[in-house]
Design a protein around this nucleic acid. Structure first.
Lengths: 307, 307
DNA sequence: CCTCGCTCATAAACCCAGCTTATGCCGTCA
DNA sequence: TGACGGCATAAGCTGGGTTTATGAGCGAGG
């Protein structure tokens, strides 16, 4: 959401307008199974509970979503649409859950992971979901920190596998590149750069004021290294989200990690501007204590990170 | 306790492991404002309520997220991570809300939109959020249906602005292209195609078994038109989500709308395979009754769709 | 030095959303 | 026609989240 200056009209929070996760899960189950009762059974509740919950969701949204019949229930057109939107919420919640369970860091974990923030934020939940899909009984614990902290954990044998971003590999660790954090230049679709047919010269990027994170942030450092020390800020903002929404609303070109803008790119709220002559990315590496390449669950996870 | 019918260990649903939306919103507010009390005030609840809610969320997740001090509250490292994951859920909920409010279709709407499913599902929520940001008092109503239904609504003057996908423009309507639904070929990163340096020949695409939606679906039709009538299914699945997860888990190459896989592409769970010699896209058009180009809020929305 | 002002925590009482159990109605199929 | 599956309704219970009221820690300023 945009920075809420002057709220003006007091509107009840999102939570009062959006059904809770349980209701959304139920809706997805009804869509999949074609019956309130079966959906209820799958979720471990009774049929009247499901019936009432769907009904109250319809009342809350003001839309009939389910066509009831004595032979089952099918979604209405509106219901199908709502279900598609709901699926996104539930998917985000699944990623949250996968991450949070690892973060809980139980002592009995069979795999202890230490990861830098970018990786933990964007990539690890997906990997953990995939790992859970293929090895459901693997308990993973996660510790997030900077590269030095990751290295320290590994060397102290408090973690089995680490993930770091950046140019250098900490000493006494073995590493393999598992991906790249590509910075990309993005603008709103209306910006002149969006109509270019040729890549933007690095020189022009360096001399144009950009929407950037504050000095010292990881992406800012990568950008300034690539440009040779200079970057002109048009705006300096303190969160990736803020940079993103400024760019979407057309304030100017921004430089952001590709990981942060997948959704915006595919919906064309932002467009990516190719740039010639600079490598705006940094390697993402899996690391482990020299000579102790992970086995078992760690090896499984490592496999997932490379496809 | 719920009884474990069927699936071995019965695991409580997501809703019991993920904090509800209200708690996540609160967490974001705490992160932004640096104080439980201020966050409480912003959300219109009391400070003890916020305190207790954050505490119970920490208990639920088993992670300390907030460092309390007499001068305010800051997130811990783990808390920052949880907050980033939470933000995705909240963003999806905001899109849901924007769509659902329009779907409610109140009679007093100042702008009545009719849209086809793909557009309503993927693009419209974003447009509506943008519209709300720049014109907060515009009430929009939405009706979703196929192209014929959209045309009918417009011609009956029951809608002010329509959106359709497909090759043809219904008669008696004016239209402007607002985007493209690009189908792309995707595979898991480990697939041989992912290592190609040259675009895939259309011929090879046509002769390779693919993971596809069922016959008759929109994307399947576009693909078969582009390929000249033939497509070999490796798997035929009935939902985009199912196709996507099969592809992610490496079952084979799939053809999907770019709109459906933004997230998977940026996280490299899927990679896009360029194809030579076929146009795998269909135009997305805004349409209106001939000679009645929208004014006012309709014009605003139209502006947003083109950047 | 002491008090004000901000922070957060605790305790008790309240309320309502959502659950269960029990029942009824409707349509389909053998 | 009776059994079955599907949904709706009603009554009663429970718990999580809320409020009000209060207390305690820390810093700033008269």
């Amino acid at each position: 959401m945009s920075e809420g200056v002057g709220e003006g009209l007091r509107v009840a929070g999102l939570a009062h307008r959006v059904p809770d996760l349980g209701a959304l899960e139920l809706l997805l189950a009804v869509a999949r199974l074609g019956s309130l009762g079966r959906a209820a059974r799958e979720l471990g509740i009774t049929q009247p509970a499901a019936s009432s919950r769907i009904r109250s969701m319809e009342r809350q949204l003001g839309v009939a979503m389910v066509d009831r019949s004595p032979r089952g229930s099918r979604l209405t057109d509106a219901g199908a649409l709502v279900t598609d939107w709901a699926r996104r919420i539930v998917e985000a919640a699944e990623a949250f859950d996968a991450g949070a369970q690892a973060l809980r860091g139980r002592r009995d974990s069979r795999l202890r992971v230490a990861a830098s923030m970018t990786i933990a934020e964007y990539l690890l939940p997906g990997w953990l979901m995939a790992l859970r899909a293929q090895r459901p009984d693997t308990a993973v614990s996660l510790l997030a920190g900077n590269s030095a902290a990751v290295a320290q954990r590994l060397l102290a044998d408090e973690a089995d596998l680490g993930f770091v971003e950046g140019l250098t590999v900490p000493t006494d660790l073995d590493a393999v590149v598992v991906g790249h954090d590509r910075l990309i230049v993005v603008t709103a679709p209306g910006h002149p750069w969006a109509r270019r047919r040729t890549p933007l010269p690095a020189q022009e990027l360096a001399t144009t004021p950009l929407i950037l994170r504050e000095e010292g942030s990881g992406t800012r450092q990568v950008l300034e290294t690539a440009l040779g020390g200079l970057a002109r800020p048009l705006l300096e903002l303190s969160s990736t989200t803020a940079v993103k929404s400024s760019a979407v609303s057309g304030a100017g070109p921004a430089v952001l990690s590709e990981l942060a803008v997948g959704e915006e790119l595919s919906a064309r709220r932002l467009v990516s501007i190719p740039v010639a002559g600079v490598r705006l990315d940094r390697a993402l590496r899996a690391v482990w204590r020299r000579g102790h390449r992970p086995t078992g669950p760690g090896r499984d996870l490592l496999g997932l990170t490379r496809g």
